[in-house]
Design a protein around this nucleic acid. Structure first.
Lengths: 238, 238
DNA sequence: CCTTTCAACTTGTATTTACAAGTAAAATAG
DNA sequence: CTATTTTACTTGTAAATACAAGTTGAAAGG
């Protein structure tokens, strides 16, 4: 049963321009080719090009100025998914080290943090894992991830040491993050967090409960993140 | 010198539909009139209608389904600008009360929270205001807003008791929020926050520093929000 | 009565055409 | 040389048209 998916022209153009920005063909501040130039290059008409550019604007890759052109803004840092920043300067991913506390295992669940589950999710059970993230060898994040065990063959035997969880889901299971909701609160560290973060009693910790939507209808990823923001604040764009 | 601003048709349609959703003409799950119906009602063509609907989709007011129609999703809770949710159930805006601690006044500034300012911003000075937000008569938010004093006639004399700051900026000054960046951290309440939130020492508080982009190039709004998340967590979608 | 087919909707994609409005650099007038 | 105007670009808005593709309910068939 071949998928036989037809990808619209405006999406193709979007993907090409997007990859050109993320892969460094265009740099911050560069002027994109004009809309008419893009028309001739990609053999489509202006509304089609403009639809692709509209999406790039929405996602923060470019800005447009009437009379001037489309200016590359760079690769958006967050898009809702928070990344971290130091108080001094930006931190490359190189300094981020992941330690797996509990390897992915099948568990029963009744709810996912504060989010209610539907019957299908409860019956399927979940894949549970805990990770501790170190920035410059200091523990900053502790996160718990719960994924409904639905149509994810051999998931628990995969290696997550270096790969991002979302990269694995996208590459091997065609699961893509489309959006989600999150609740943020400030708490004081309990004993477990005091141990993980190596902090004393009364230390404030940021807690995130997230329900992440995917392109699979009804398939959500749940995650709970604790963050020691004493040195590194959570950073996000929107 | 009359401003003589021409508002595009697609924007007018967007504003109308948006207000109809926010003001309860359409409810969650309702089907919007079809694109062709909207064409005849607003006397424009389909591309114009579609542009308005595109924006509503992007902002999360509606979802569209090919063959079915446009379905109202409701008023987006977050869109980057976090709103709050109770631990028990959703809270209507009715229960939100705003108390103005410091009315908008002109001040000098050198930096905006952790964000650096450019020379033009420093020279212009800022409009400074402090507000305390109460949910069910309990203080939950304390926020400081700093806006560069550039081309905002009569701003300090406006009444913000009931209106949202951003509504005023959009309606009277054509300033629209386009995005921004934020830093989140968890702190313990200082004396001022202990007093405002009526909490004891060592109480954890969520702190947000935000730099908000607008459609005016180079015009940013800076805000610092403190949130007592003991009862109400910050809630956002992405 | 149930299933299949079809017709009448819906939104999605794409082209063509036209003009408005902002920008910047070249051409022109002083 | 300088200030102004013009010109040639850029993106922004809008219409008219066409067909593709998904959904739904009514009509036709068994």
């Amino acid at each position: 049963m071949p998928q036989n998916i037809v990808i619209p022209q405006h999406r193709k153009v979007y993907e090409i321009l997007r990859s050109h920005i993320t892969e460094g063909v265009f740099h911050e501040g560069d002027l994109l080719p004009s809309e008419n130039e893009l028309c001739t290059v990609h053999k489509v008409t202006r509304p089609t090009i403009r639809k692709a550019l509209d999406r790039l604007v929405n996602e923060g890759y470019i800005v447009r100025h009437q009379g001037k052109g489309s200016i590359v803004k760079g690769v958006p840092k967050g898009v809702g998914i928070l990344s971290l920043t130091g108080t001094t300067s930006a931190i490359g991913q190189d300094n981020l080290l992941t330690h797996i506390v509990i390897k992915p295992e099948i568990r029963n669940w009744q709810e996912a943090f504060t989010f209610p589950l539907n019957q299908r999710e409860v019956e399927s059970g979940c894949i549970y894992m805990e990770r501790l993230r170190l920035v410059n060898n200091k523990p900053v994040f502790f996160d718990i991830t719960m994924i409904p065990n639905i149509n994810l063959p051999r998931f628990t035997s995969r290696n997550f040491e270096n790969k991002s969880l979302f990269d694995v889901l996208r590459k091997y299971y065609q699961v893509e993050v489309k959006g989600g909701e999150q609740k943020l609160l400030s708490i004081v560290a309990d004993e477990r967090l005091m141990e993980y973060f190596k902090v004393g009693p009364g230390h404030p910790v940021l807690q995130l409960n997230r329900k992440i939507e995917t392109n699979r209808p009804g398939f959500y990823i749940y995650s709970q993140v604790f963050c020691n923001t004493a040195e590194y604040a959570l950073y996000g764009i929107f």
